[in-house]
Simulated scan of single mutants.
Amino acid sequence: MTNPSSNPPFPPNLPLAPLTTISHSKLLSNDSIESSKLLSACKNQGFFHLDLRTTPQGATLLSQSSQLYNLAQSLFALPLETKQQFALQKGVSLFGYKPAGTVKTTDPSHRPDSTEFFNIGKDDLFFPTSPDTLATKYPSEITPSLPLLKSFTSNCHVLAMELLTLLAQELQLSSDTIFTDLNKFDQTSGDHIRLTHTIHTPNDNKLGLPSHTDFGTITILFNWQGGLQIESTTAPNQWEWVKPLPGHAIINLGDAMKIFTNGLLKSAKHRVVPLPDNQEKAMERYSVVYFVRPNDNVMMKAVDKFENDEIRVRVAGKFEPVLGGEGNSSSTGEVLTAGEWMVQRAVQLGN
């Protein structure tokens, strides 16, 4: 198996997204400056680098993500006909295999993507609906890695809850658990691990993943190669590269947090493009992602002091009131539950 640290270096002189780097150890030490940086990053960029190198929890996640990198290589090396046996059903199940070639409605040119992935559900790992749930949804090759998958899932969830608690504190909400109560581990949700594999063919017109926003609460990304771009906060429709940093996770908020805070916190548009320069010679890109999504019974609406605010969007660097929501209501105007909303968004986005 390829060691993820053996990838070619990220090329210089590319326009980089100005992401804040935040220390996990300082957050755990209740460093007020670091917590303030966290809130600022979530309000302005919606993305940040999280340095995990100096905490035992962070070191464990870094080690586990590298092991899952190797698992991804094994899974995606399976024959396509084998992987297709576990294909997720759009509008029915969010979990299983998605082949490359999906067209997202968010891409105006309707270009097929070049990324395949396996979504492995938190509930399937910890609270399966039947004894054969795992066997019917996922290849048997994941069986030896079940302890790893379960430990990584629970560790990522703990990390996400730490961040949500700090955000609630920084926002001076009525309770530190306002956000964590919407994302409880032991309740049914769309939380999942995603193992991704992108193959770039020279001179084709495909994107790894077309532009989109995530539609959960928090995304935790472990990525060793280039390819991720974020829409510029100062120049719409311009894209800036995210340089992977050794020992760091890339964290971003999803649309759920934008809804819960009525637009105060940012869910940034991003995409995956062909690997830059010398990294493109590797041709293949792997990443390990954990998505935290609200519990299925949560109502997708603003919470606490944001409930009576006008919905806001950023215009010319400032928040301005607008009419309408984030697709969080049905055709009759009823607010959707998170479970209903996740299915609706997955159908819209093509996965």
Score class of each variant (00 low, 15 high):
Gly96Leu: 06
Leu264Pro: 00
Thr129Met: 06
Lys301Gly: 02
Thr60Arg: 08
Gln64Tyr: 13
Ala268Asp: 13
Leu80Thr: 12
Gln57Lys: 10
Asn237Tyr: 10
Phe95Glu: 12
Asp186Thr: 13
Asn119Tyr: 08
Lys318Thr: 14
Asp123Met: 10
Thr133Gly: 03
Leu78Ala: 06
Asn7Ser: 09
Thr60Gln: 12
Ile120Asp: 00
Gly121Gln: 01
Thr201Arg: 11
Val158Asn: 12
Ala77Thr: 12
Thr180Lys: 01
Asp123Arg: 09
Gln344Arg: 15
Asn237Trp: 01
Val313Arg: 15
Pro144Thr: 11
Asp31Arg: 06
Ser65His: 01
Lys137Tyr: 01
Glu310Tyr: 03
Thr180Met: 05
Pro144Met: 04
Asn205Cys: 09
Leu323Gly: 14
Ile251Ala: 10
Glu231Thr: 05
Trp224Gly: 00
Gly227Cys: 03
Glu162Asn: 15
Ala256Val: 09
Ser29Asp: 13
Ser63Asp: 12
Thr153Trp: 07
His197Cys: 12
Ala338Ser: 14
Asn308Phe: 06
His49Cys: 02
Ile218Ser: 07
Gly190Leu: 00
Ala249Asp: 05
Asn252Ser: 09
Gly325Leu: 12
Lys258Ala: 15
Gly263Lys: 05
Leu209Val: 13
Thr82Ala: 08
Lys37Phe: 07
Ala72Gln: 11
Asn237Asp: 15
Thr21Gly: 03
Phe179Gly: 04
Trp239Ile: 04
Ser145Gly: 04
Pro276Glu: 07
Trp241Ser: 14
Asp277Asn: 14
Phe179Cys: 08
Asn183Cys: 15
Gln73Arg: 11
Leu28Cys: 12
Gly317Phe: 03
Arg312Thr: 13
Thr133Ile: 03
Thr54Lys: 14
Pro9Glu: 12
Glu81Gln: 13
Thr219Cys: 10
Ser29Glu: 10
Pro236Val: 07
Arg345Tyr: 04
Asn328Leu: 06
Thr105Leu: 12
Ser330Arg: 07
Val292Asp: 05
Glu116Arg: 03
Thr198Met: 08
